[in-house]
Structure formats: structure tokens, C-alpha cells
Design a protein around this nucleic acid. Structure first.
Length: 484
RNA sequence: GGCCCCGUGGUCAAGCGGUCAAGACACCACCCUUUCACGGUGGUAACAUGGGUUCGAUUCCCGUCGGGGUCACCA
């Protein structure tokens, strides 16, 4: 049988990395087996609906490469693919009534106040279990209230005795007492279905074979199974993924600052790295290679290897991985992205030099915004500490630095060609003529030129970027600062 | 609190009765080097705990402890 999976987000804002992972896994499971991946918009919550969020979903899926085979913008045989449109078509109401006829569901006219009174507080958490109050209403009473237009919902009628068992591909069989199953609402008073109901109906109608979702749904799964059974429908394969947590082992929330795909892109991560990283949050490939493109993932993804325990979102590792992707980029596409950051920091630089800086920085950054801080010294020499001249391995200190800088300055003044290669050749020759070691001279030079202990390149490369005048000026200033 | 799930280094994570308990990030050291980085080599570091079962448990079972999830007219 052909595998069909679906990503079913509700358009309420940015794309949480947990949702991105769910979408990814759904996509991978389907594509690994040559199946279909569908997109269904679950906009049944009119209060949380955010204008534009649907577009964001399309954009994100497109950018990450999770291309769907059917969806609102790509009609298949199971449309419409937007739940609010399916509500208009009367789909959910029809199935809910079928359940009522089978005594598997019932109308409930309880008021908000009565429901409130059912709530109890345990460990400062509010818990409410519906007491089946309206189940005892007679047929006449129900018809009367319906005719009178009394606000109502439709509830699932769950048994209070016995057990329900369901199977998850990862967790195995899970058995729950039916007493734990409350009569959840299927159709809300505004006529819209709840997620719980719409999901089951649509998954069946759309022929979904594998349902991937977060761990938090595991406790409501037996209720879904009762729905499938009441209808006489086949139950899909369930795959509940482990939770993604922050460093404190708490559910990843907006507070962490990197909980959504959009946040991460904004922070300077590349899409491919984020997708790669998210795939590894709770799943591991068979081999030792962790750098995997979407194509690699499709090829290697085996959902049986999804882990059962929660995964911490390791921001440090994401950064490392992003760095790997940046290093693997070719020179020109790296430059295309890097140039904005370079020109933002060094507005007056010419393109040739910008390209050189881009190449320097490529193997040294993890995310794009690392660039400005790394290269800002080209534009302006900040105050620095003369202690930087002291370097044990180079055998340098302030006094040797002063001597060397004073000695080499006149020589540098005689040089005309300030290209890196020419400079390095001439200076190297000068160094050996004077019987010095490279570092003995180049270290102080680099400090005077940059005022920094670490730079994205060596002394002569800095000189090339700065040009003759600025080079001489900075070295002169260094000599002055050293008391010469 | 009821119910459910989980428990291998700081983090992710292989393992699926017998291993010197992989690998990755981070960290440390060394090499390379015009600093840093990259790259290379090596290193520190783990089976929560108590009982079983077994010739033998990280692996299977039970308890304990710890963590998480869920109990909405949200998904």
C-alpha cells in the first residue's frame, strides 16, 4: 500500500521547530517509500488564527524543500485541504451525527458556568472531567433544546469501564483504563470541529497511512482509536516523536529565542543546516556521518530509529553544524550572502577586497552575524592593550615589538606593491636577511595593524586590505603607543 | 494528584544477553600555521538506584528515585 502522510499545521504564527521536525519526518517517511506527502491547514480555531500565517507555512515548506504532493494550492482527490472549507461542506457535522445515531456521541448543552463548577484544582493545575450530565437527556429534551436554539456542543461518548489498547510504532502497545477517557468535545458550539475530531475524520478521508505527531498527543490517542472503531475505519500507524526541550529540559518555548524556524534564519543560520539539525533531534542515522542533505535524509530515513527519550536543543551543536554548511559552500554563493554583512561593516571597501575578506572569513564563522565583529578592525582601529605584543611562542614582548616595528617601518615605506603575495615575499626576505623568525616580526606587525589578538588572516593580508597609507599609519601609531 | 511515557559522558546518541560501552558537539593537549580558524592526532568524561531472571546483564522483569507529558469549546 502506498504510504500517505500529512503535515497539518494550524495557522497561528511562526513555525515551531517541533512542527518543522514533524513535517520533516512526515515528508521523509513518505518519500523514503515513494509515498505522498500532503498539506492540510487546520484552521478550526478562529480565535488563534493569525492573518498571513498560512503564507508563512507555504514559504517555509518551499524553502526547506518539503514539497507537498497535495494541498490547498495543489488539489488532489481529497479536497478541500483547508478545514474551514470542509466545515462549510458539512463534512464534520455529518460524521458527528452519524456517531450520535450510533450512541457514540451526544449533544451537550451544559453552560460555561456548570463546566466551571466541575473543575478542581490539583497541584495548582486545573483539571476538569466532564460528568456525562447531558448523556441522560431524553430524545425529546434534546430535540426541544435544539429547536429552541440552545447553544450546544457534541461530545464523544466514552465508556467508563474496561480498557483500550493502542499501538505506537515506537512505544509499542499502550493500555489505558477507559475511566481515563473523558468525553471530549467533537463539535464546538460555533459549529467548528475540534482538532481531535477533524483530525481523525480528515486523516481517514484523505487516506493517511502514517500519523506522525508529538509525544504530547499520546494520552489522547486512545480516544482517537475509539473514534476510528466507532466508524469502522482502519487505524493508521502512529509514530509519536519525543519532545524537544531547551537546555533546562523544559519544553522548547518562545522564551528560548530560537524556537521557530524563522527565528533561526533571522539569527543567521542557513536553511539546510537547520533542516539537518532538526532531523537529528530525536533521530539518528545508521552510520557516523551526521551531515546529511535532504536527499541524504530521504534515502537514509528509517523511522524505527526515532528515539523515545526527549532531545535537548543543543544550540552549540547547531552552530557547529551551520559552520560546516558555510564551509562547504562554494566561494561565490558564500560571497553572495556574506557581502551584505561585509559592506555593512566596511561601506567603503571595493568589491575585490570584499571578496578577499569573504574568503578569509568563510572557514572562521559559524553564523552570518559573526562577520561584522570579526572584520570591523579593517574600518577602524580600536584602542588596544600593548600587552598583546607579548607572545611566548613568538618570543615577543613590548620592547622587541617596538624595536622590530621601528626597524621595518622604513622598509615598508619603500614598498609600492601592496598585494599580499608581493608583501609576503618581500617581508619574508627582509626577515631572513635580518636573521629573525617569521613570528617574531609578523606577530607585532599584525597587532599594530589590527589591535586584536585574533584576526581572520595574517599580517600581510591585512596590509593588502588596508593599503599602503593606512598600513604605515597604523604601524606608526603602534610605535608611538609603545613609547617610541 | 490520576493516568501515560522516558532514564547510556555536560549535550545529542550507537547498543537491541557476552563490547577494552561506538560516533558527534563542547572541553583539554599536541601537530600544522603569518595570529585565530580550518585540518590532523590523541585525551578527560557515561550505562540513575535496589532487587530479581540468567553461567553472564547497559540490554529482560519488578520496586525506588529522577525527568517529562496529559487531564480545554488549543492544536
Amino acid at each position: 500500500m502506498k504510504i500517505r502522510t500529512r503535515y497539518a499545521p494550524s495557522p497561528t504564527g511562526k513555525m515551531h521547530v517541533g512542527n518543522l521536525r514533524t513535517a520533516l519526518y512526515e515528508y521523509l517517511i513518505a518519500k523514503h517509500e515513494g509515498g505522498d506527502f500532503l498539506l492540510r491547514i487546520e484552521d478550526t480555531d478562529r480565535e488563534r488564527f493569525v492573518e498571513g500565517a498560512t503564507d508563512l507555512i507555504y514559504r517555509t515548506l518551499k524553502e526547506t524543500g518539503l514539497v507537498h504532493d497535495e494541498g490547498p494550492d495543489k488539489e488532489g482527490d481529497c479536497g478541500p485541504y483547508v478545514q474551514s472549507e470542509r466545515v462549510k461542506a458539512g463534512i464534520y457535522q455529518k460524521y458527528a451525527e452519524e456517531l450520535i445515531a450510533k450512541k457514540e456521541a451526544y449533544y451537550c448543552f451544559c453552560t460555561q458556568e456548570r463546566l466551571e463548577s466541575l473543575k478542581q484544582k490539583i497541584d495548582d493545575k486545573e483539571i476538569m472531567v466532564y460528568d456525562k450530565h447531558c448523556l441522560s437527556l431524553s430524545e425529546e429534551e434534546v430535540q426541544e433544546k435544539l429547536a429552541a436554539g440552545v447553544p450546544h456542543v457534541i461530545r464523544q461518548n466514552n465508556p467508563t469501564e474496561g480498557k483500550t489498547v493502542f499501538r505506537d510504532e515506537l512505544y509499542g502497545d499502550i493500555e489505558v483504563d477507559n475511566a481515563e477517557l473523558d468525553d471530549m468535545i467533537l463539535i464546538k458550539s460555533d459549529g467548528y470541529p475540534t482538532y481531535n475530531f477533524a483530525n481523525v475524520v480528515d486523516d481517514h478521508l484523505m487516506g493517511i497511512t502514517h500519523v506522525v505527531r508529538g509525544n504530547e498527543y499520546i494520552s489522547s490517542t486512545p480516544k482517537y482509536n475509539r473514534l476510528y472503531e466507532a466508524f469502522g475505519w482502519d487505524i493508521p500507524v502512529y509514530i509519536h516523536c519525543p519532545l524537544i526541550t531547551d537546555e533546562e529540559h523544559h519544553k522548547l518555548s518562545k522564551r528560548s529565542g530560537h524556537s521557530s524556524f524563522e527565528d533561526l534564519i533571522e539569527q543567521g543560520f542557513v536553511t539546510e543546516a537547520v533542516v539537518n539539525f532538526v532531523a537529528l533531534l530525536g533521530w539518528s542515522p545508521e552510520g557516523n556521518n551526521e551531515i546529511l542533505s535532504l536527499t541524504d535524509l530521504v534515502e537514509n530515513f528509517d523511522y524505527h530509529r526515532i528515539s523515545k527519550s526527549p532531545a535537548v536543543f543543543d544550540f552549540q551543536k547547531l552552530k557547529w553544524m551551520n559552520g560546516e554548511y558555510l564551509k562547504a559552500m562554494d566561494e561565490s554563493s558564500f560571497y553572495e550572502k556574506a557581502k551584505d554583512y561585509i559592506f555593512e561593516t566596511l561601506p567603503d571597501i571595493d568589491e575585490d577586497k570584499a571578496k578577499k575578506i569573504s574568503a578569509m572569513v568563510k572557514s572562521r564563522i559559524e553564523i552570518w552575524p559573526d562577520i561584522p565583529e570579526m572584520i570591523s578592525f579593517f574600518a577602524k582601529l580600536d584602542d588596544y592593550d600593548n600587552a598583546l605584543y607579548t607572545h611566548k611562542k613568538m618570543k615577543t614582548d613590548e620592547s622587541t615589538a617596538l624595536a622590530v616595528l621601528k626597524e621595518i617601518l622604513p622598509f615598508l615605506e619603500t614598498l609600492e606593491n601592496y598585494s599580499n603575495d608581493a608583501l609576503y615575499e618581500k617581508i619574508s626576505a627582509w626577515i631572513s636577511e635580518h636573521g629573525y623568525k617569521n613570528g617574531y616580526v609578523l606577530w607585532p606587525l599584525r597587532i599594530a595593524l589590527s589591535g586584536k589578538a585574533t584576526t581572520p588572516c595574517g599580517a600581510t593580508e591585512i596590509m593588502e586590505i588596508l593599503g599602503r597609507d593606512e598600513t604605515l599609519a597604523r604601524i606608526g601609531k603602534g610605535v608611538l603607543l609603545l613609547g617610541g
